[in-house]
Write a protein that binds this DNA or RNA. Structure first.
Lengths: 191, 191, 191, 191
DNA sequence: AATGAATGAGAATTCATTCAT
DNA sequence: TATGAATGAATTCTCATTCAT
């Protein structure tokens, strides 16, 4: 795998994160990657292809994590915690990537659209939990969708704060604890 | 308020929903609104301004709902349920608008970006609840962010299914019940 | 029919004649037509479309001439003479157009390629002649192909001379006489 | 003379024939010649230079034939027949080359443009014939131009049919006979 | 000599915006 | 107000050519 291709990917992530896919030009990407425009097209078929590649690369990395997690012997609730913790960790390390994934998901090509990611994994864990009784009987698809949405919500919030210069990485710890608290006790008091 | 301006807004929502903001041209908007391109510029400063106007219009409508809700005497948990129910209802009635709001939020201009919507409202209700003891002591900002994310997650899911031709409006009812179930009991079983 | 479209057609003919289709840029065409680049695309789908339009316009004009000729009561040999004379006349009047037609025929789009022109007409006349005995029994397709080739040969020669600055419009008269002489007596002497 | 240079020439002929000069890329030529792009530039100054070389190679080969023919003792009419027969033969054997020569003649460089080929030779033979009385007094330049055009017309026709998948190599025999028939008797009947 | 990744000038096309009618 | 032809800056992508290995 070429050094140049990776440089282009990194540069594109940074640009797409800060200006969005459509507002980033191939010239800018080339400049940011310190490469000639033409070089981009030695590694990617089109600008669109760069975006797809970013998603596919990330997807493959996550998929590996999920599979490892899937096979672990943790109880399902703990698995949920672990996977979300890892997810947040990843985000903290690479916030630009997250911004791209949150914002440009609807601009990816069709092969990328097929892919299933965190949501599918959450739903698998929840089903595992309901089957073993570790998780109350719930609609696992909807719960997964909501948890996934909640995670994205936290990331969005982090991104937006960061954009305003108000970087708060500790938010992820608090969010993780709060989320597990809700998992255990719900929101309502005074039953 | 001119009839034309409204026609342009409606046409733009439909187009932005199906092709995205950047892929929709002013010519297309004009054609869909049955108006000449030039006419658009009698009502809007720019294409960007149309998007902003869509957000602001929607925001104003919702704001009215929130304020009415705020003043009602319902208990906080019930308020949450009601506001989310109304939200889902709105989505069912106007799915295009939702798609635009979900997908184009990062393309709006700065005055729009300032505005606070559902999330702020959720956080106010939760605070109200924690203060009155109807809601357990939680981090209301983070909870609001997560609930808001969960709601968006459901809407995203609905949009994506709809795009694939798999329209399931009953998902909102199930999601609402499931969400309240979580609010009341959390996710974990076998405590 | 717009004045602009015609201006673009004329400008393109001049450019294609002198630099060839591939070496002429849309910027040049626009400049020569005294129009903005974008304007070209209000009248043509693509640069290719301009070339096709040039051919189709010319084809339509010629077709009208052929049909009129077809219906005339002249004897076939005379018809051949007349049609070739008119053809040469056209060339003399618009040498650029001829250059384009001679040189860019293989760059036209598929709808244009279908069209049949002078060759088909020649073959029809020759058949008419052989049937009436005014023309010796010959293979009319091959004869038409060769006559058509001979006509193109003359035009090519004229174009090339003109390009070198050696303009000889009288060549057409001599060529016409010589061609009819061959029609009547062949090339060989001393039978 | 290197084997590589020849491979490049052959590959270029095939590509130019089927896609045209401007639509063929140096990468394609290299791939077809099973050579690296850079290697092309060890043998040719530019892409243009490849085209020129194709023409010059062909020209030299033909020139040798013409000179041999020139020195033969055949009578002029017979010489015409023989040279055209040989020409057609060549075409049958290498139709791609013909396509290139017919279609890309106006893309050659200036040194190539100077060269005189078949037409010049035909005109020399005709003059020889008129001087010896074997050929009727005619304008030998114009007759040569027309014969040359007729020959090209036949080749064009063959190429076009071949492109449509309708390969008819026997057309050359019929064309040769028909052409000599015209040379001997002209086209007109009922004198 | 051979290679092929890198280059970047150049080309076609798009589209938000303007403005004369 | 309404119109829509005209505009031309901006953008994506191509490809002949170079040059370090």
């Amino acid at each position: 795998m070429s050094d140049k291709k990776e440089r282009i990917r990194i540069a594109a992530i940074e640009l797409f994160a800060c200006r969005g896919f459509h507002r980033s030009t191939t010239d800018e990407i080339a400049a940011a990657a310190d490469v000639a425009v033409g070089t981009i097209y030695n590694y990617f078929r089109s600008k669109q292809d760069i975006l797809d590649h970013i998603f596919l690369t990330e997807h493959a990395k996550r998929q590996a994590v999920y599979e490892r997690m899937q096979r672990s012997q943790l109880n399902p609730v703990h698995k949920l915690r672990t996977i979300i913790a890892e997810h947040f960790d990843e985000v903290r390390k690479n916030p630009d990537l997250v911004m791209v994934i949150l914002r440009e998901g609807h601009n990816v090509g069709p092969q990328v659209r097929e892919k299933e990611g965190l949501r599918r994994f959450l739903s698998a864990i929840i089903r595992e939990g309901t089957e073993s009784g570790k998780i109350r009987p719930v609609d696992e698809e909807i719960c997964a969708t909501m948890m996934f949405g909640a995670v994205r919500g936290i990331m969005r919030d982090f991104s937006e704060r960061q954009e305003k210069g108000d970087c708060q990485p500790e938010i992820f710890n608090r969010a993780l604890e709060q989320m597990m608290d809700l998992v255990h006790h719900g929101l309502a008091g005074e039953k």
